Amino acid sequence: HSHMSHTQVIELERKFSHQKYLSAPERAHLAKNLKLTETQVKIWFQNRRYKTKRKQLSSEL
C-alpha cells in the first residue's frame, strides 16, 4: 500500500469535485501528472465515491 502525498490528494480531490467518474484516458493522464499508477487513481476514486455515498445515506437518516 503506497502513501499519497498531501499534494496528490489535493489534486485528486479537485478533480473529483468536477467529475466523479474518469474515463480511462483521463485516468491515465491524471496518474501521469501526479506520478501515481492508474490503479491508484482508480481505487482512490472508487473509495471516494463510496465515502460520498455513505455520507449522503447517513445524512438522510
Results as ranks from 00 to 15, higher is better:
His1Lys: 13
His1Phe: 10
Ser2Asp: 10
His3Phe: 10
Met4Phe: 13
Ser5Gly: 04
His6Asn: 08
Thr7Gly: 07
Gln8Ile: 07
Gln8Lys: 05
Gln8Val: 09
Gln8Thr: 05
Gln8Met: 04
Gln8Trp: 05
Gln8Asp: 03
Val9Gln: 08
Val9Cys: 13
Val9Ser: 05
Val9Ala: 06
Val9Tyr: 09
Val9Leu: 12
Val9Arg: 10
Ile10Ala: 11
Ile10Thr: 08
Ile10Asn: 07
Ile10Asp: 08
Glu11Ser: 06
Glu11Phe: 06
Glu11Cys: 14
Glu11Trp: 06
Leu12Glu: 02
Leu12Asn: 00
Leu12Trp: 02
Leu12Gly: 02
Glu13Met: 09
Arg14Glu: 05
Arg14Val: 06
Arg14Trp: 05
Phe16Gly: 02
Phe16Asn: 02
Ser17His: 14
Ser17Cys: 15
Ser17Gly: 06
Ser17Trp: 08
Ser17Val: 08
Ser17Asn: 09
His18Ser: 11
His18Gly: 06
His18Cys: 15
His18Val: 12
His18Thr: 12
Gln19Trp: 07
Tyr21Thr: 04
Leu22Pro: 05
Ser23Ala: 05
Ser23Gln: 03
Ser23Pro: 03
Ala24Ser: 06
Pro25Ser: 15
Glu26Val: 04
Ala28Val: 07
Ala28Arg: 11
His29Pro: 01
His29Arg: 15
His29Ser: 13
His29Gln: 14
Leu30Thr: 01
Asn33Thr: 14
Asn33Ser: 13
Asn33Ile: 15
Leu34Met: 04
Lys35Ser: 11
Lys35Gln: 12
Lys35Ile: 04
Lys35Cys: 15
Leu36Asn: 00
Thr37Asn: 04
Glu38Cys: 06
Thr39Met: 13
Thr39Phe: 10
Thr39Ile: 10
Gln40Ser: 04
Gln40Ile: 05
Gln40Thr: 05
Gln40Pro: 00
Val41Asp: 00
Val41Trp: 01
Val41Phe: 05
Val41Ser: 01
Val41His: 00
Lys42Ala: 11
Ile43Leu: 10
Ile43Cys: 13
Ile43Asp: 07
Trp44Asp: 00
Trp44Val: 01
Trp44Arg: 01
Phe45Lys: 00
Phe45Trp: 10
Phe45Gly: 00
Phe45Gln: 01
Phe45Thr: 01
Phe45Leu: 00
Gln46Tyr: 11
Gln46Ile: 11
Asn47Phe: 13
Asn47Tyr: 14
Asn47Arg: 15
Asn47His: 14
Arg48Val: 04
Arg48Met: 10
Arg48Phe: 04
Arg49Thr: 01
Arg49Phe: 04
Tyr50Trp: 12
Tyr50Gly: 10
Tyr50Met: 14
Tyr50Phe: 09
Lys51Met: 12
Thr52Pro: 12
Thr52Ala: 15
Thr52His: 15
Lys53Ala: 12
Lys53Val: 07
Lys53Ser: 09
Lys53Tyr: 08
Arg54Lys: 14
Arg54His: 13
Arg54Thr: 09
Arg54Asp: 13
Lys55Cys: 15
Gln56His: 14
Leu57Gln: 13
Leu57Asp: 13
Leu57Asn: 13
Leu57Trp: 05
Ser58Trp: 08
Ser59Gln: 12
Ser59Pro: 13
Glu60Ile: 07
Glu60Thr: 05
Leu61Pro: 09
Leu61Ser: 13
Leu61Tyr: 07
Leu61Lys: 11
